[in-house]
Design a protein around this nucleic acid. Structure first.
Length: 873
RNA sequence: GGAGGAUUAGCUCAGCCGGGAGAGCACCUGCCUUACAAGCAGGGGGUCGCAGGUUCGAACCCUGCAUCCUCCA
């Protein structure tokens, strides 16, 4: 073993060993309880980022632990076709080559997209490999697979037949860049410094005008009315009158509608039913004409008169000029307002009249909300996210599911060429020559929503996987896609399987840069997880991600933290290296924990028990940070700093029996520790475990550590506590007087009683080793040496005669400080105990503890006080 | 406008059921001790955002306020 931990070397071939050993596949042992996770399928568009690394590492940690705990674990991998994102990338590539999809045609374009998919899928698998994810590749799925496509068609057709999917002409969110409709949640609103344009429309056959204002003046070309509130006294005389639309010359009615807010602006609004959702509603109520003035690419169409062909923003400038010249537009006001942008392309989204397919959400949402009242509810972790989810569900709006793309699930609807009749079915109509299939595909999330059961063989409800592994146990994802994905999985699962899709949903935050900014391409502050792995290894990255934050909270990426995690891995490595160096020819069969054990042995086994308890409990609760801290402290502060140092005595000594016992304990504790650490740092733990005396093929399928009550030893813990405080006191004094361990000192220990004398005598060898005394006296009647440094511990007093080295003024100062400390503690405890309320109301064990402390502090206070008196005399 | 989160050491964050404020990094001092100098030993550093309240006891529970962030409308 090298003296430095080299992750690349260890990690290089490990994954192949795991995959070839089929350790990540489900077992055929039906008596084992199944445990299922489906991976949130990453977009097949590109590479995995740190967010994916974080998300999947948590899943890996959970599934590795569950596997070790004896579950039949299925962690199902897969990818998402990501309609808009992928198509945009493929189109961009075509553009580079001077081509476009329309020239190529649908079929050829899809061929190219599939090639793209294969290329990136390979790349993503290689990233999963580097992260060390224990995925069952025999069940890998893709959202466009035939099985999953069957599921999509089944769901679409069923919902259509139930009247829960409909087609119609409504205002939708149109992305002029990618030229497709979007659902409401694919629109992100951002504050934009815009303008409020104030205009006066002339009233026909009158000198009067009516004042309106708009932020999108170009839409006036599609105005078909002006609306005022029916109770607005200012406009009573104008109701039913006609307005002449400037530039266009269209005659429009002034209508009364309670939607209009009298307080806003002039109290009159222009109505553009084809370009605004509210105007659309008003248009319906008043039977207004809908005039679309834009093309799908955001340019003005033939209804825009001489503005035809202009881009919408170009047209805005021009029309403002023209209206100003005509005196129609009389004021422009700076105005900050919310403007919708496409979540994908960033383009300003246009509210646009269009015929699309929708899911009628209310009944589905009601059902999903009802699910949360029963035992079959989805447990959100942290639970506050359940409120976020419910709030959205309770205010649900219909879901626009058609997308004007080619890459995706084509809508299973056909239109009769002659009659226009609509046919919706899982298979094409028999007389296909008379029908044309809908050109559009479904929203990608429509298929992702089925992921937990479509991947299991559904709609075949008799399929083995569906029966055994569904519902899944936990889903891990970020809070940013609760609406996009989590919510939709829940209502689709409830609707089609009658069950929740997962028992738990673990929600994590976003990963940010060191300054707390979102990682983004435009900022160039993204960190590639593969770079982190190259530099520090997957185990370091994983441990950093797992322990760096609390559930639901965001996480900042710091290289420095990854580096300190590497230090921890290096510590684990070297502790193991030391152990192995002292275990030559020591085999698994030689491990014997039943022989006479040393204090150190008993103590570390007790601490191991406690660590197993904490790590198991916290990992089960998804509290990876807490579990990690227990592991870290146990390994570094207890196993390395104390046990290994103490183990050197027997290991370097010549008592064969003691050596074998120490090797046994060391081998056992390391084995158990590697197992606990394995879900967190899979590579290094497998590597070390393989080298340690072990039984079994791989740590991935080794049993999870169990608490062994027989190893719990309270007495040893207390002895160890006293020993450690003695050693620390001596170190402290040595440091005060600049006397390194290599230089011998005299050490006298005055004990309180014979029991403590015996205890310390028994552990004399440790005191020799850690304190390096030239003379060590342990009795109840040690006489205070004349010139000495001293310290008090529970049950004993230490004296280090260090003639010549002691600065008495400094020593008095030190002791005074200590006396103040104990005096303060005594006062605090006594005040507490004098409080009747405390003694009567606090739990008994808390009061007992305080009484215990009181006597301990009083003892220490008295001894320090006496010492000071001696020094001053 | 509504909802949620955050505010703890110089920095980044833990602190789970209310019972003596913790870690990593950074900083200071001393050590190349035969697992690890990316280490070891010792040390300094906090008005737990502010103000009230509940309680024998509050970083933690309640109310209000302040600042920052996110989501929804």
């Amino acid at each position: 073993m090298s003296s430095k931990y080299n992750p690349n070397e260890i990690e290089k071939d490990m994954y192949r060993f795991w995959v070839e050993g089929k350790f990540f596949e489900t077992t055929d042992e039906k008596e084992k309880e199944p445990f299922t996770i489906v991976i949130p399928p990453p977009n097949v568009t590109g590479r995995l980022h740190l967010g994916h690394a974080w998300d999947t590492t948590m899943q890996d940690t959970i599934s590795r632990m569950k596997r070790m705990q004896g579950y039949d674990v299925l962690w199902l991998p897969g990818m998402d076709h990501a309609g808009i994102a992928t198509q945009a990338k493929v189109e961009a590539k075509l553009k580079e080559q001077g081509e476009n999809r329309h020239d190529l045609g649908r079929e050829k374009f899809l061929d190219i997209s599939w090639d793209w998919k294969e290329e990136y899928a390979d790349f993503i698998r290689s990233q999963w490999e580097k992260l060390g994810l224990g995925l069952d590749y025999s069940r890998e799925r893709f959202t466009l697979d035939s099985g999953l496509s069957d599921a999509v068609r089944e769901v679409f057709v069923t919902l259509y037949e139930k009247g829960l999917i409909y087609r119609g002409e409504y205002i939708i969110n149109w992305d002029p860049d990618t030229q497709t409709a979007l659902s409401d949640i694919e629109v992100e609103y951002a504050e934009v410094q815009g303008k409020f344009y104030h205009m006066r429309y002339p009233i026909k056959d009158s000198d009067e005008t009516i004042e309106i204002a708009t932020t999108r003046p170009e839409t006036m070309l599609g105005d078909t009315a002006v609306a005022v509130h029916p109770d607005d006294e200012r406009y009573q005389h104008l109701l039913g009158k006609t307005v002449v639309l400037p530039i266009v010359g269209r005659e429009m009615e002034i209508v009364a509608d309670t939607y209009v807010d009298m307080e806003m602006g002039s109290g009159a609004v222009k109505i553009t039913p084809a370009h605004d959702p509210n105007d659309f509603e008003i248009g319906n109520r008043h039977d207004l004409e809908r005039i679309l003035v834009m093309n799908e690419d955001g340019s003005m169409n033939e209804n825009a008169g001489h503005y035809q062909g202009m881009d919408r923003f170009e047209c805005r400038k021009q029309i403002v000029n023209d209206l100003q010249e005509q005196g129609v537009l009389f004021d422009i006001e700076e105005h900050v307002h919310q403007v919708g942008h496409s979540e994908r392309s960033g383009a300003v989204v246009e509210p646009y009249l269009s015929t699309q397919w929708f899911v009628h959400m209310q009944p589905l949402a009601d059902d999903a909300i009802g699910l949360q009242d029963g035992d079959g509810k989805v447990h959100f972790v942290p639970d506050r996210f359940e409120r976020t989810y419910l709030h959205w569900m309770e205010n649900i709006r219909d879901w626009c599911i058609s997308r004007q793309l080619w890459w995706g699930h084509r809508i299973p609807a056909w239109y009769h060429k002659e009659t226009g009749e609509i046919y919706v079915g899982k298979v094409a109509p028999a007389d296909i020559e008379n029908w044309e299939q809908d050109e559009d595909v479904l929203d990608t999330w429509f298929s992702s929503a089925l992921w937990p059961f479509s991947t299991m063989g559904w709609p075949d409800e008799d399929s083995e996987d569906f029966k055994r592994y569904f519902p899944t146990d936990v889903l891990v994802t970020g809070y940013d896609i609760i609406f996009f994905w989590v919510a939709r999985m829940i209502f689709q699962s409830k609707q089609f399987t009658g069950k929740r899709p997962f028992k738990d949903v673990l929600i994590h935050g976003l990963i940010r840069d060191s300054e707390g900014r979102k990682m983004s391409k435009s900022l160039g502050n993204g960190v590639d997880p593969m770079d982190v792995i190259d530099q520090y290894g997957a185990d370091s990255l994983r441990y950093f991600l797992l322990t760096g934050s609390t559930p639901g909270q965001d996480l900042r990426f710091h290289w420095q933290k990854v580096e300190s995690t590497w230090n921890f891995a290096n510590k684990v490595w070297n502790a193991s290296r030391f152990s192995l160096m002292n275990m030559e020819n020591f085999a698994y069969e030689d491990i014997d924990l039943n022989r006479e054990k040393s204090l150190a042995d008993k103590w570390i086994l007790t601490r191991l028990n406690e660590t197993i308890e904490h790590v198991t409990k916290n990992t089960n609760k998804y509290e990876f940070g807490e579990a990690g801290r227990h592991l870290y402290n146990f390994i570094w502060d207890e196993l390395c700093d104390w046990y290994i140092e103490m183990a050197k005595l027997p290991l370097y000594g010549d008592d064969e029996q003691q050596q074998q016992t120490t090797r046994s304990v060391l081998a056992y504790v390391l084995d158990q520790t590697m197992r606990m650490l394995h879900p967190y740092m899979p590579f290094i733990t497998e590597e070390i475990w393989q080298q340690l005396p072990h039984k079994g093929e791989s740590i991935t399928v080794a049993n999870w550590p169990e608490i062994k009550p027989a190893f719990h030893d309270e007495v040893a813990s207390n002895e160890m506590k006293r020993l450690v405080s003695i050693i620390k006191s001596v170190r402290n004094i040595r440091s005060e007087v600049d006397t390194p361990l290599s230089k011998q000192i005299k050490l006298y220990i005055r004990t309180e009683n014979d029991a403590i004398t015996n205890e310390l005598e028994k552990n004399r060898s440790y005191l020799d080793h850690f304190c390096n005394p030239s003379e060590l006296v342990i009795t109840t009647d040690v006489e205070t040496p004349e010139k000495a440094m001293s310290a008090v511990v529970t049950g004993a007093e230490l004296f280090l005669p260090l003639e010549g080295l002691i600065n008495f003024d400094k020593e008095i100062e030190r002791l005074e400080k200590e006396l103040t400390k104990w005096t303060r503690e005594v006062e605090r405890v006594q005040k507490k105990l004098a409080n009747e309320g405390f003694v009567n109301k606090a739990p008994e064990h808390v009061v007992d503890e305080e009484r215990q402390k009181e006597s301990d502090y009083l003892e220490k206070q008295a001894k320090v006080k006496a010492r000071l008196a001696e020094l001053r005399s």
